[in-house]
Every structure is written in structure tokens, then in C-alpha cells.
């Protein structure tokens, strides 16, 4: 039982465990969204380089398109910050 498992834990230990869990949650939030952004940017980036190689005028536009998936990792970062602070 959960209650029985907690027997023997001091409040400091429980607090430390909660802080650890938050840190793990924050790490998962930033890590997974970072990977998702990378996957999205991989395809967009290679298309952007291809388009720029053929027509240099589109550089500004494709740069903007390439960084759009950065929003995913920003959401992750926000969640992580909310968890920690």
C-alpha cells in the first residue's frame, strides 16, 4: 500500500523526491520537444537549403519557415519553467 511505503520517509525526503520528479518532468518536456523540433526542422531545413541553392532571393523567407518549429521547443521550455518555479 502507498501509505505503508511512505512509512519511514521524513518530510525532507518527500520534498526532495517531489523536487526530483519536477526536474525529471521538466527535462522530459524540454528534451522531447527539442527532438520534435529537430525532426521538423530537418525536413524544412533541407528543403530550405535546396530552394536557396536554386534561388537566393528566397533566403529570408525560408529562414523564417525553418525556425517555425522552434515554437514547439519553446512550449516545452515554458512547461519546464512552470514546473520548476
Amino acid at each position: 500500500m502507498v501509505g505503508e511505503e511512505l512509512v519511514g520517509l521524513t518530510p525532507e525526503m518527500i520534498e526532495a523526491s517531489q523536487a526530483g520528479m519536477k526536474a525529471i518532468g521538466a527535462a522530459i518536456a524540454v528534451g522531447s520537444t527539442g527532438l520534435a523540433s529537430a525532426a521538423a526542422e530537418m525536413a524544412i531545413g533541407s528543403a530550405a537549403v535546396g530552394a536557396t541553392a536554386e534561388n537566393k532571393d528566397v533566403f529570408g523567407l525560408v529562414l523564417l519557415l525553418t525556425v517555425i518549429p522552434e515554437t514547439i521547443v519553446i512550449f516545452g521550455l515554458v512547461v519546464a519553467l512552470l514546473l520548476i518555479f
Binding site: 530537418m42 525536413a43 533541407s46 537549403v49 535546396g50 530552394a51 534561388n55
Partner: peptide, 19 residues
């Protein structure tokens, strides 16, 4: 590199086609 080289070259072909 996964699909990256395919995406790169296919985009170049599309741009060339538009010209």
C-alpha cells in the same frame, strides 16, 4: 541522413521546374 537528401534534391527540382 534519413529523408533529408531526398527532400533537398526534390525541392531543387521543383524550383527548377518553376523556372
Amino acid at each position: 541522413a534519413g529523408p533529408v537528401p531526398y527532400v533537398y534534391v526534390c525541392t531543387r527540382m521543383r524550383v527548377r521546374k518553376s523556372k
